[in-house]
């Protein structure tokens, strides 16, 4: 999978409450959730994000609650990939299961600035900052997790196995 978009840069411990505040959890409609994505952190985010954009953040991205509304809101807002130094584990699972591409790569996070155009080759784990020309290698996924991603998420994999 190949992605290319503008980087939106955030800090560490971006929690699921700021990704999608609980006051909007009385719905699970992706389009509705997308309207409020990250609003308590950056009210401008939903206005400036363009389809295909990339979020770049420091450690522990997605910490807090298990709400799958968080990766759903990010994806529905138009973001294809999140690159972080590390992810909170439930968010990590949820992203793999729901098909939001995520990459762990501390070097890339340190080097990429907000507004840089970044391209990602998710299969090879290669991240390129097109603005500066720097290239980074992210952690590749273990085979078991690749299997889920390649099946198109956990539901599809389960479907294949059960039917």
């Amino acid at each position: 999978m190949q992605f290319k978009g503008t980087a939106h840069r955030y800090g560490r411990d971006i929690d699921t409450d700021v990704i999608i505040p609980a006051r909007y959890l009385n719905t699970s409609d992706p389009a509705e959730l997308a309207k409020h994505c990250l609003e308590d952190l950056d009210v401008e985010f939903v206005n400036k994000v363009a389809p295909g954009d990339i979020i770049v953040a420091d450690e522990n991205f997605g910490c807090g609650s298990s709400r799958e509304h968080a990766p759903i809101a990010i994806k529905a807002a138009g973001v294809d990939v999140v690159i972080a130094k590390s992810f909170a584990r439930i968010f990590y699972r949820n992203s793999i299961n729901t098909g939001l591409a995520i990459m762990e790569c501390p070097e890339a996070v340190d080097a990429i600035s907000a507004g840089d155009v970044v391209s990602v080759d998710a299969d090879a784990g290669v991240i390129t900052d097109e603005t500066t020309g720097q290239v980074f290698q992210a952690q590749p996924f273990p085979p078991f997790i690749r299997e889920i991603i390649e099946a198109g998420g956990l539901i599809n994999r389960t479907k294949q196995k059960m039917n």
């Binding site: 298990s66 709400r67 439930i90 949820n94 299961n97 956990l154």
Partner: peptide, 14 residues
């Protein structure tokens, strides 16, 4: 341990 809804949905089935 906490998981997301997709894990739970698959858990219901399997």
């Amino acid at each position: 341990t906490g998981v997301g809804s997709t894990d739970a949905g698959v858990g219901y089935a399997t």
